[in-house]
Simulated assay, not measured.
Amino acid sequence: MSLKSFSRSKSIHLMLCYTGGCNGCDIEIVNCVLSPRFDLEQYNVFLTWNPREADILVVTGPVTHHNRKPLEEIYAAVPEPKIVVAAGSCALMGGVYKNIHGDIPSEEIDGPVENIIPVDAKVPGCACRPQDVIAGVVSVLPKLLDAD
């Protein structure tokens, strides 16, 4: 077993990537890891702000035009296997930022996330519930752990 696979089997690092929106989902995701109620750190699930350390990229927001390129750069920096969880209705379909008329293209919103980068798990909600975020992260663990 390599050092990398040993380390991955002992801890999971989530990187939270905000791509626009209201930050409601970001608060719930941080709540999963840091709050005493869910406290995922006790299970060795940690937040990181370095894409080179990330095992799972958790993306929130509708992907604004301004944030598209940074999202692509962060995704490129995440090591293989590149695992992405799209969290919240904005990340899944544009949420309240989506053009409700459908006949006028939005110049500001490039999302949803799956139009920009591949998505492995989708967590619905506005804002997404911590229990659903945890379920979404757990659903992609086999892909992460089987890759090594």
Rank of each mutant, 00 (worst) to 15 (best):
P105S: 01
P36D: 07
V84D: 10
S11M: 14
H65S: 13
L47S: 06
E114F: 13
N115F: 14
I27V: 12
G20Y: 09
A91N: 05
E80P: 13
C32W: 00
V119N: 06
P62S: 12
G111K: 03
Q42Y: 10
D132S: 15
E41V: 09
V33L: 08
P112K: 06
V140D: 12
C90Y: 01
F38D: 01
N23H: 12
H65Y: 05
Y97I: 04
E108N: 14
K82N: 07
I100D: 10
V30P: 02
S89N: 13
C25T: 00
I12A: 10
I117T: 00
M93V: 02
S11W: 07
G24I: 00
A127D: 05
D39W: 15
D26E: 11
P62T: 06
V78E: 06
P79K: 02
G125T: 01
M93Y: 10
E28M: 14
M1T: 05
P105H: 02
A87K: 01
A135F: 09
P142A: 12
I12S: 04
G95W: 03
G88L: 03
L145F: 14
V58P: 08
Y18E: 06
L145E: 00
H13M: 14
P62C: 14
D120M: 03
I12M: 11
S7H: 12
G102L: 06
E80S: 12
G94M: 08
Y97D: 05
S35W: 05
E114C: 13
S139Q: 10
H65C: 12
G102C: 07
